[in-house]
Amino acid sequence: MAGAHELPPDEVLVQRLRSGDEEAFALVLDTWSGGMLRLASSFVSTKASAEEAVQDTWLAVIKGIGDFEGRSSLKTWVYRILVRTAKTRGTKESRTVPFTSLLPEEAEATVDASRFRSPGERYAGHWAVGQEPRPWHLPEDHVLRGEVRELIAEALDDLPPRLRAVLTLRDVEGYGSQEVCSLLEISPGNQRVLLHRARAMLRSRLDAYASSPDDAHAGGGERGLR
């Protein structure tokens, strides 16, 4: 994650928060709120609602810091409050879906089946001719790279809620799979399916962007000659 601030260890941090150290509070507030906003957005329907969920969470943290028992990291404890708060909001906005089972669109194939050779064909299950993935040439240049990031951010916003929540935590925030399972109360198997599906959807969005300039690919033009 970009610009992660150095935070003191949890024992020190909790001690400082309990004793009313405003500098310590500003530090966690500024370090975690960005990720919290992103995560809250998976559960609620508007940006404003996500902001309110984050604010409500911090108010709960301020009041409840005395109850923190240190059984998880402080950050996980805060995030757990956020998930609860945002889910409750989402339910009121009839947005949140139950996290226990997979929805059909979440378990779809990584790559469309038509891109592989069909069963019975020679090399069944291998890439079909002309459907092979082409190497990307993503810009290294800072400004152009920003365009790619924007594209990815938009694609992330378009994901179904649970895919978005898992992808945000794993790949944007850098959480491990165990923590994500515990935060979202899903099984490791489901977590992996959701994560993979989400990555696959963003990969194909990027693919459409990154392989479009040189469409004059060998094979593509020959079809008309037959």
């Binding site: 970009a2 709120s33 960005g34 906003l37 790949d171 944007v172 850098g174």
Partner: peptide
């Protein structure tokens, strides 16, 4: 391509309150 996708996700700018 999967790896590049994951890399770019890790480069997203932070949101701010």
């Amino acid at each position: 391509q999967f790896r590049q996708t994951i890399t770019i996700l890790g480069e997203l700018p932070e949101e701010r309150l």
